[in-house]
């Protein structure tokens, strides 16, 4: 299940790019789910565990992947940690939902991410409310970010 805490969260890893640079493992790039995320978000292809072919940057190491994909990869391999998912654009949202179907994931959001028009399930930790779509999520998210609750 996806759990979201909105607003400042000291225990969350804020600068996910720095954390990724110092902690990612080469074998992570071999995972088919990771390769799909990289292909979809960054339009890039994993050539081998240390080499990615990017249409914009040429051949790059994993550290030069987009901030959003790096955070997605961290969420996937380290679900015990809470990462700042505001480093992810809305084009990462569907991957967060897919991951949360496989395992429990807690993320920290500092903005209202758009999870799309479909239904999903997420627990807002600020007030322990479960929401099922953006219509239900936006009011809780907005008030949580302002330090208020419904």
């Amino acid at each position: 299940m996806l759990k979201i805490y909105y607003g400042d969260m000291p225990e969350a890893i804020y600068n996910t790019a720095v954390y990724f640079k110092n902690n990612y493992l080469d074998e992570w790039m071999e995972d088919p789910f990771v390769q799909k995320m990289i292909k979809d978000v960054d339009k890039s292809v994993v050539v081998d565990r240390n080499l990615i072919e990017s249409p914009a940057l040429g051949k790059i190491p994993p550290t030069l992947l987009s901030g959003g994909v790096k955070t997605l990869i961290l969420m996937y391999f380290e679900p015990e940690n809470i990462f700042n998912a505001s480093t992810c654009g809305d084009n990462c949202a569907k991957w967060i939902l897919r991951m949360a179907k496989k395992k429990d994931i807690t993320i920290n959001l500092r903005h209202i991410m758009n999870f799309g028009k479909g239904n999903f399930e997420a627990m807002i930790l600020n007030n322990n409310q479960i929401v099922h779509n953006m219509k239900e999520m936006v009011p809780v998210a907005g008030l949580s970010l302002r330090g208020e609750f419904l």
Binding site: A17, V41, D42, K43, A56, L57, S66, G67, G68, V69, T87, C88, G89, D90, N91, C92
Partner: peptide
């Protein structure tokens, strides 16, 4: 500057 991931902001 904001928006989707992988648009080139950090680049």
């Amino acid at each position: 500057l904001c928006g989707d991931s992988a648009t080139g902001k950090s680049t």
